[in-house]
């Protein structure tokens, strides 16, 4: 598919305002969702890796749920929870936050589909840090915050980058849940779908090409940051 479109078509496509906006929107919302996942997912991943509590399996199941269920179902669930006729939707609309057909709605959807990838990757990173290292750090005088930043974080930051890239990549490619919550404003996958259904394969290929390139860059970044460094 990469070889099929003409270079001139690709160039003209990337110059189109609608395409640039859709790609930009996809990147912006995906990065926004990743930022939310990092802020809330990191402590959650730490708790899931270190603590034992009643209902832990249930919480793990909830985190993994968006990976397992069809994504339009996630969109429908979010609309049911935050739609205009729901209690939460009403509360949010009172403070001028709209979910349906808005950037906020897209970000919320992308958090749901992308966060499990971030949380699970970072959780694996925390699990790989022996608790004894943190205890040794405390015995040497470092408090819990200092221990996190001097011992735990340096050992999991690669997992955090890896998780962020996976979360972003997953969010950029999301279509099923986004189309339910926000057909407009259009993200790149929705634009590709629209062009495919309205104008056919050739017209959608050029946008798809640029989406693939962005995803490729993200995965190459992931491989770059996750590589092992030789020790002296």
């Amino acid at each position: 598919m990469l070889l099929m479109p003409e270079v001139s078509d690709l160039v003209s496509t990337i110059k189109e305002r609608a395409v640039l906006e859709a790609l930009g929107r996809s990147i912006f919302t995906a990065l926004g969702a990743t930022a939310v996942a990092v802020v809330f997912g990191t402590p959650l991943a730490y708790i899931m890796a270190r603590k034992t509590f009643v209902g832990k399996k249930f919480v793990e199941g909830l985190i993994d749920l968006p990976i397992m269920i069809p994504h339009p179902v996630i969109g429908i669930a979010i609309l049911s929870l935050f739609g205009r006729n729901s209690l939460w939707g009403e509360l949010l609309s009172r403070i001028n936050i709209e979910i349906m057909g808005s950037i906020t709605g897209i970000v919320i959807v992308l958090v749901f589909v992308g966060a499990p990838f971030y949380i699970n990757t970072v959780k694996a990173g925390f699990e790989a840090v022996p608790p004894r290292l943190e205890k040794a750090s405390q015995s040497l005088g470092a408090g819990m915050t200092a221990t996190f930043f001097r011992v735990t974080f340096p050992m999991v930051w690669r997992n955090m980058i890896l998780g962020s890239v996976m979360c972003t990549a997953r969010a950029i490619s999301e279509f099923g849940a986004v189309i339910v919550v926000a057909y407009h404003p259009m993200t790149a996958p929705v634009l590709i779908y629209e062009r495919f259904t309205a104008f056919g394969l050739k017209y959608s290929q050029c946008v798809a090409f640029w989406l693939i390139i962005i995803s490729l860059i993200l995965f190459l970044t992931m491989r770059f940051f996750s590589r092992e460094r030789p020790l002296s």
Partner: peptide, 13 residues
Amino acid sequence: PPERRGIGIVYQD
């Protein structure tokens, strides 16, 4: 808290 006890520890590993 452990960091203010003035006790050191050397672990088996």
